[in-house]
Computed example of a mutant assay.
Amino acid sequence: MNIQHIQQFQSYIRKRRAENRRDLPWRKTTDPYKIWISETMLCQTQVSRVITYYNDWLRKFPTVEKLAQATTSDVLSAWSGLGYNSRGLRVLQAAKDIVARGSFPTTYVDLVTLPGVGDYVASAILAFAYGQNVAVIDTNIRRILIHQFSLDEKISLQELKEIALKVLPHGYATEWYNALMDYGALELTAKKTGIRPLTRQGKFEGSRRQVRAWIVKTIINSQGGIINYEDIQQRFPDRDDLQSIVDDLVNEKIIEINDGKLFICNM
């Protein structure tokens, strides 16, 4: 990879960006709270679905302070449909941590100490909220780099990060990564390249995720916010893993159970 190759790549991506620019609501802000929410929602959820959830979320919780004051039920209700209720719970926990600290973290080291914030989300916040020259690797960017530079699909994340930093036009992190993501989503797709993502979400219908989602949603929508364990057995009579699913929700502090009655575990 030489300088000329990098410059040609940068020029091409900028050109494609001019022709394929997605108008997404989280691209109209540099508020780290809003960037964090959008990136967390986008994890394994299609962009088209996230747009509605993102806008609805900000109407309910416009600031991290408002979110920190919310109940677990309020947050899980707003998160319902995005999958992984535990992710929504960690967002609430992180909001409380941020408010307790007095300000939103501005460094990678501090960001990854927040519940639910891993390498990708932390890096995305730094790039999109603060414009920092960091390596951001999502499934689209990974695919583009592998295809563009003929890399082995088994390349490590650290090696990809090093390449991402080499091709990043310093000072333009936000524009650059948005351009790469648009190019990967709209043109250089997995179908076109044959490059498979590292992880693929399993089928929802019939999965443990479906049962978990049903339990949480049913509790939230029930009168009094309580359901009986028998309600779950009646809804899923052929499953033999219901107790372990309930145990997982209890261990994750999403629900509590007392004498066969299930309810949301408020923080």
Rank of each mutant, 00 (worst) to 15 (best):
I144G: 12
R90V: 10
L111P: 05
I98Q: 01
L114D: 02
T52M: 08
V134P: 01
Y54Q: 10
V121A: 14
R59Y: 03
K66E: 15
Y54R: 10
K15N: 12
L76F: 05
I146Y: 03
L126N: 08
M41R: 04
R14A: 13
P105E: 07
K66R: 12
E159N: 15
E39N: 08
W26C: 07
P32V: 09
D31W: 04
T107D: 13
A135P: 04
Y120E: 14
K66F: 08
L114A: 11
R17F: 15
W36R: 10
V136H: 04
Y84E: 07
R22P: 05
T40A: 14
P25D: 12
E153L: 12
K154M: 12
E39I: 10
A100W: 02
S48C: 00
V117S: 08
V136F: 09
F149H: 14
N55D: 10
T40G: 12
I51A: 03
S86P: 00
Q132R: 14
V121E: 09
W26N: 04
T52F: 13
A78D: 04
P25Y: 12
I144K: 11
A70Y: 02
W79V: 11
E153W: 01
T113D: 06
R59P: 00
D23G: 06
F61C: 09
I137V: 14
L89C: 07
K154A: 14
G118A: 15
N55P: 00
K96S: 10
F128K: 01
K154W: 01
R101M: 13
D97L: 04
Q132K: 15
V117L: 13
Q93W: 13
Y130L: 06
I125H: 00
N20D: 14
Q46M: 03
A70P: 02
W36Q: 11
L92D: 09
G81V: 12
I125Q: 00
I146C: 07
I155P: 06
K28C: 07
I51E: 05
I155F: 06
R16L: 13
F104N: 05
V117Y: 01
A94R: 09
W26P: 02
V136M: 10
Q69F: 01
S38K: 02
I144T: 12
P105G: 09
D152T: 02
F149S: 11
E162H: 14
K161F: 04
D74R: 00
H147Q: 14
R27P: 06
D31E: 08
R143P: 06
I155N: 06
T113C: 08
V109P: 00
A124E: 02
K15W: 04
L58S: 10
S86M: 07
G118D: 12
A70S: 10
P32N: 06
S123H: 01
A95V: 14
F149P: 09
Y108I: 08
T29E: 11
A135F: 05
H147S: 14
F104I: 05
A124W: 01
R49G: 00
T40I: 15
N85A: 08
Y54W: 12
D74I: 00
S156M: 04
Y54G: 11
I98D: 01
E162K: 15
R101D: 02
L160T: 13
R27H: 15
V64T: 07
T107A: 13
D74L: 00
I37N: 06
N133Q: 13
N140S: 07
